[in-house]
Amino acid sequence: MILDLHSHSIASDDGRAKVENYCKWIRKKEVPIDGFVLTEHRQFDFAGDYAALARDFDLTILKASEVETEYGHVLVFGVTPALTERFDFGAIGLPLVRVIEESQHHGAIAVPCHPGRTKVGMCAHIETLGVPDGVTIVETLNGGSRGSEDESAQAMAAQLGYQGVGGSDAHIVSHIGRCATRFPAPVRSETELVEALQAGEFEALSWK
């Protein structure tokens, strides 16, 4: 089971892709993924219901969030209504440790994304803020990374013993599936995704 764990639709302020068009693109271009996770910026898209699209295109479409912390951007998988009450998803500069702890408490999991990116990635902030507690997984392959940003992420992950996932960070249709994550068993819900990540059996993939 291969899922792109990082994508944005028009529900994000800078997203230019409709979810249906991601589905069409994946099938028309035979993108080798079985589904994708919508990680909208600074919000959780409670309103979006993509069950019909998932059924029609035989794809897994899950929802998550990308929030902003003092260590950069962080994907939160397994978001629940209760979790969205615990901190302001729309804020920038959220304390990463709090995001991690609250996520764990509510059955979710927080994954710093594009850590090699300047200003919004964890690598640069570790130099000034130190190594944060509680991180177990980071995004080591990001479809929007430039230059050596992914190499920096992978080096940090290796040094600190983090596992790595992959996601395209797609904002436009043609970028979906550039990077993804392979799981050994089917993942059909947000709960199963969290369980799969907690189980630790996954592999980051790139087709960039």
Partner: peptide, 12 residues
């Protein structure tokens, strides 16, 4: 609203 990116903080 505000967000952060490669260039730092931005206000929209």
């Amino acid at each position: 609203y505000e967000k952060t990116g490669r260039s730092g903080r931005m206000i929209f």
